[in-house]
Design a protein around this nucleic acid. Structure first.
Lengths: 181, 181
DNA sequence: ACTGCCATGTAACTAGTTACATGATTGG
DNA sequence: CCAATCATGTAACTAGTTACATGGCAGT
């Protein structure tokens, strides 16, 4: 929790708006699913709407009804100068919480002595498939940032987390081999 | 959430008791800090006590007052056969939730365009130090499991997550270089 | 006409946290 | 004797979730 009482997730949502476009809660959820989730996590839609209300109350963003003519009750949000300042301040001066890896396949393997070996192997093999899927998604993300100067930092981060998940894929293979010994 | 309504964290706590020793809530917290946290996360003490009560109500563990002569109101827990069966069932037949990486340094870097470059570099350099500390702790853990047959699976998992954090350390360096371009 | 996506939110819940109260024991 | 650690838990809170209600719009 930052000095101003906002959670890291609130800053993640606010951060999505620092890229300059006006976005709706729905847009934010989609973008979070496609990016944030690889190195933070993607909050539920209802959670996003709540954070938006909180951020607006603090003056970090403003909202207006969407495109005229769009009868859907769309509402779009834009970051304010105060919001941009808060993000800069948060990045520089808020003690970052520790890195956290929630790795269900590793947790299950850790308890391998309490499980059937064949079923444990199946868990790891499924995990291997999952991680590879994740890597492909990240590769798509990286391709989408290429050549776009505004996406320089997201590109750097996607390469970063790609290396992490690639190491997981390799280490999963190694663990599978060791299970067979 | 598993079929029987227990959270993954409940199974993590129960899992700590599959290694056979009787443990107190306090012991569990310490052990979680020293192991679980590298691939799952370490619940607060109060959370552990709550999960213990829940698990005992389900008959997955039993408790008794600690060593006679120990006037401290210590209570130790042991897993039951039903508990062991539940763990085996959970490992094999519960859909694992997706892997989750909460990486505050990467999140901040993702928003690099909204921050002062020098301060962002400082965030990454601090992260590099943190990860190296983590790697040393994992190495201690690995050393502690070596030669102990009961710790075979924990050993496999520690090597596994070691590879992941080592990749993070390397990728952090790469990101720092790219920031300088 | 129907299906699927767009879009926002509320209600009710579970998960997990911090702060605190309480008291014993151990080591210097 | 004092500080640190051992040890358990309650209370009050925040974080985050799922389930659901509501309705528009677009393509087939």
């Amino acid at each position: 929790v930052a000095a101003d009482g906002l959670s890291t997730t609130a800053y993640a949502v606010l951060g999505l708006l620092t890229f300059g476009r006006e976005l709706s809660g729905y847009d934010l959820k989609k973008w979070a699913d496609a990016s944030l989730r690889f190195f933070w996590w993607s909050p539920a839609s209802s959670h996003i709407y709540r954070e938006l209300a909180r951020l607006e109350a603090r003056g970090y963003l403003t909202s207006r009804a969407g495109e005229p003519g769009d009868a859907r009750r769309k509402r779009v949000y834009a970051i304010t100068d105060a919001g941009r300042a808060a993000v800069a301040e948060w990045i520089a001066h808020t003690e970052p919480e520790p890195i956290m890896l929630k790795h269900p396949a590793a947790l299950r393997t850790w308890l391998g002595h309490a499980a059937d070996t064949a079923q444990l192997r199946a868990v790891l093999e499924e995990h291997r498939v999952e991680v590879r899927r994740l890597l492909r998604e990240i590769d798509h993300g990286i391709a989408a940032t290429e050549g776009d100067a505004a996406m320089r930092y997201p590109g750097i981060v996607l390469e970063w987390v790609r290396a992490i998940y690639a190491a997981d894929a390799t280490a999963t293979e190694t663990a599978l081999e060791r299970l067979g010994e």
